[in-house]
């Protein structure tokens, strides 16, 4: 139930995955929208404040998720996923995992580059920990931009593949990331 099994993800992994997925897609949308706002838009300031705070939450959730993965069982791929697809899926998952750290960190470096902290929904502040040089800041700005839009393209491939394995290959890929129970009967049926 809580932990993952051989053929399905547990409730904790499922919770992490969909919370983070929703936040990630939302942050790309929010980011793209907010940079186009004009100075006189009522959301001009709040959109960025929200973007930063949610982004830090994604970083915290992702680190917690990595911690959990260390102690959780690791489900193998379903039989519908072919060997080369497994390699691709694993590479994609690792890349997405790296993005979940690198993106918020680069955002953090941009926003804290002049010493201001990140206001977390008015509750507390994440201080500026590093002295960021102008060169590092500019690198962070470029990385944040390209990795955010490159990342959302990767998410598209990732989600597309999940649907493909579920709908076209009639596998359990999506289901095992949705229902924290063993699907062995389902897998068996799909094998017939």
């Amino acid at each position: 139930m809580w932990r993952s099994g051989r053929d399905h993800y547990g409730l904790v992994s499922i919770g992490f995955h969909w919370t983070i997925a929703l936040a990630f897609v939302g942050l790309v949308g929010l980011g793209a929208w907010m940079v186009g706002l004009t100075y006189y838009d009522p959301w001009y300031n709040d959109s960025l404040a929200l973007h930063k705070a949610i982004g830090i939450v994604v970083l915290a959730l992702s680190l917690a998720k990595f911690g959990w993965k260390l102690v959780d069982r690791k489900p193998g791929y379903g039989p519908e996923v072919r060997a080369y697809e497994r390699a691709g899926a694993t590479a994609t998952h690792w890349s997405l995992g790296a993005l979940l750290v690198v993106l918020p960190v680069t955002g953090y470096l941009i926003s804290t580059s002049e010493g201001a902290g990140i206001d977390m929904f008015g509750l507390f502040e994440v201080p500026a920990f590093f002295d960021v040089t102008a060169g590092t800041r500019d690198l962070a700005i470029d990385l944040h931009y390209y990795l955010a839009y490159g990342g959302i393209a990767l998410v598209g491939i990732h989600a597309g593949a999940a649907f493909k394995h579920t709908v076209i290959d009639k596998g359990s890929t999506l289901i095992r990331m949705l229902i924290p129970r063993s699907r062995s009967e389902h897998v068996d049926r799909s094998m017939k």
Binding site: L48, I110, S111, T112, S113, E114, A116, A134, R137, I141
Partner: peptide, 13 residues
């Protein structure tokens, strides 16, 4: 011009 500084990282960006 890149050295503009108004004490606010995002504004400077």
């Amino acid at each position: 011009t890149a050295s503009v500084d108004t004490n606010h990282a995002e504004r400077d960006k």
